[in-house]
């Protein structure tokens, strides 16, 4: 149990807690809209809101470096990538009635059940646990950098290899097929269409 537990009551929230809960509500709402909206491009935009909300939560948890990384990578690049993906697969703009599969009720059930279980467990476990945010900064760039390059150098370098591999793999996968292979793969199609 944290030593700060004595000074904070559950019914007397601090300012940070109020802000966290409010931003959390916004984030959760955005996430819900992301996974339920029928307009596919809107889903991507609501995802921006949700990810940005998480970045704010990081800030409130004093992990500022990660918050900026979150904004840079997720909001800046991942969402843009997703939007490009939507464009390339010719996702319909506007309401598309078939955005959800026939599995949605089962999905809702499973999600609700797991949410209930997880929230119950977490609340049950950490009912009386407080985070002490007043200590030395735990997530500043300096601290994170020192830790990363002192203790986590090897995984960090391995990660760079992984990223390189992902880069090459993504290029290899999305590259247009060479003419010979393309002809080979298209010939049966032509035959099928000719036969039809």
């Amino acid at each position: 149990m944290s030593p700060a537990a004595q000074s904070h009551g559950f019914l007397s929230p601090s300012g940070a807690e109020v802000a966290f809960v409010l931003v959390g509500l916004v984030t959760f709402g955005a996430a819900i809209v992301t996974v339920t909206t029928r307009q596919i491009v809107h889903a991507a935009l609501w995802l921006v809101v949700a990810l940005g909300g998480i970045a704010v939560e990081y800030l409130l948890l004093t992990a500022e470096f990660i918050a900026w990384v979150q904004v840079l990578i997720y909001v800046g690049s991942v969402v843009v990538l997703l939007l490009f993906g939507l464009l390339l697969t010719k996702a319909p703009i506007g309401r598309s009635p078939d955005a959800d599969s026939g599995n949605r009720w089962a999905a809702l059930l499973v999600a609700a059940a797991s949410a209930a279980v997880l929230v119950w467990v977490v609340v049950d476990a950490f009912r009386a646990t407080w985070i002490d945010l007043d200590g030395p900064a735990a997530g500043s760039a300096a601290v994170t950098g020192a830790s990363l390059f002192r203790h986590w150098v090897l995984p960090f370098e391995a990660l760079s290899v992984l990223l390189l591999a992902a880069l090459v793999g993504a290029i290899a996968l999305s590259r247009r097929q060479p003419p010979a292979a393309a002809a080979g793969s298209r010939a049966p199609d032509a035959a099928q269409e000719g036969g039809r």
Binding site: A107, L109, V110
Partner: peptide, 22 residues
């Protein structure tokens, strides 16, 4: 052949197991 069905069953099973354990 629908991956989502499989995944639903998998997660539902894990949820049930977790509840049982709890």
């Amino acid at each position: 052949g629908n991956v989502q069905t499989y995944l639903s069953a998998l997660l539902a099973g894990s949820a049930v197991l977790a509840i049982v354990v709890l």
